[in-house]
């Protein structure tokens, strides 16, 4: 274990995240984990980590970090004006830093969440099998809270020799600028009338300011549902819930584990990377797709990530 980073500026909401604690949903604990699993995995693979290693998830306003010990890092996900000692630095590629260097996330150009991986993996408190930060329970990651000025981040021992310059070409990354999420019709789609169903797939929705790692509230045309109250059932990230207000909620990584609102559709796994990069105020549209197409999209992402391990 080596202390590699000191937090100079914490950013708006920077948390330690790995691939979460899916087994804990049986106790009502949100699964957690990186919102954009593609970017999280890519950052890890670029620096030679296992894709389940923890990274820093930097939200909307990124942190300023002082380097305490030589390390290999990679930043992926949202497009920030990344700077090392004030000079522009590239993302989606391994960069070697020396003690005393300063890594800054200056302005954000697009996207919502950037991932910083450090060779050896970021270390945090482990809770229920995962280092992911759960703010509600105040457990995991940096003592269950976002980073604060003065925090010191440690990394594990890097298993692989440092390969500076390994990166992921732009054409292999998700199309983050295309804000269309692909949906598979859900268990309660028949509760939407024909007009509401048409509105779901033809309208633009805006991500409300009241959106976070639990879920996004989407503002758009009211989508009325009919039918009696449902018995509570287990939920998944990507589910598009429709409360009686008619304004859909897209469930994200820290979602409630069960609920009784109709789920009219589910965002496919390959689109969740794009969903994770939506910021409040962004417009989003939905396209209905088949499971077969969803699996093809998933395979494209898997191959892109596998190109980093070959």
């Amino acid at each position: 274990m080596t202390e590699v980073l000191r937090v100079h500026e914490p950013g708006l909401f920077t948390t330690i995240q790995d691939t979460g604690r899916l087994h804990a949903i049986a106790s009502g604990v949100p699964p957690g984990g990186a919102m954009d699993r593609f970017a999280h995995s890519a950052a890890n693979l670029i620096v030679g980590n296992d894709r389940s290693a923890a990274t820093l998830e930097c939200t909307l306003t990124g942190p300023g970090l002082l380097i305490e010990a030589p390390c290999l890092v990679a930043v992926t996900g949202a497009d920030f004006d990344l700077r090392v000692n004030g000079a522009p630095a590239p993302a989606w590629i391994a960069i070697s830093l020396r003690a005393g260097d300063e890594l800054a996330f200056a302005g954000r150009r697009s996207g919502a969440r950037a991932y910083l991986a450090v060779a050896g993996g970021v270390l945090g408190d482990r809770w229920l099998g995962s280092m992911s930060t759960n703010v509600m329970a105040a457990r995991g990651g940096m003592h269950g809270r976002p980073l604060a000025t003065g925090d010191v981040i440690a990394a594990g021992q890097s298993a692989m020799a440092a390969v500076t310059g390994r990166g992921l070409a732009r054409q292999l990354r998700p199309r983050y600028d295309e804000h269309t999420l692909h949906l598979v019709a859900g268990p309660h789609i028949s509760r939407l009338g024909a007009d509401a169903r048409a509105a779901l797939f033809s309208s633009a929705f805006v991500v409300s300011p009241d959106s976070n790692r639990m879920g996004y509230r989407l503002e758009g045309p009211g989508l009325e549902t009919s039918g009696e109250e449902l018995l509570s059932f287990g939920l998944v990230a990507g589910a598009l819930q429709l409360p009686s207000s008619g304004q859909p909620i897209l469930l994200m990584a820290d979602h409630q584990t069960a609920g009784g609102y109709p789920v009219v559709a589910t965002v496919v796994s390959a689109s969740m990377a794009v969903a994770a990069q939506l910021a409040p105020g962004d417009e989003v549209r939905f396209a209905e797709t088949s499971i077969e197409t969803a699996l093809q999209m998933r395979a494209v992402q898997r191959e892109a990530l596998e190109s980093l391990t070959s």
């Binding site: 598979v184 019709a185 859900g186 998944v236 589910t266 496919v268």
Partner: peptide, 17 residues
């Protein structure tokens, strides 16, 4: 049985408590 996207399913066994 209903799909919940491409990686999950909901299996409903009843509608009453």
């Amino acid at each position: 049985i209903h799909p919940l996207g491409d990686t999950a399913l909901l299996a409903e066994l009843g509608t009453r408590l």
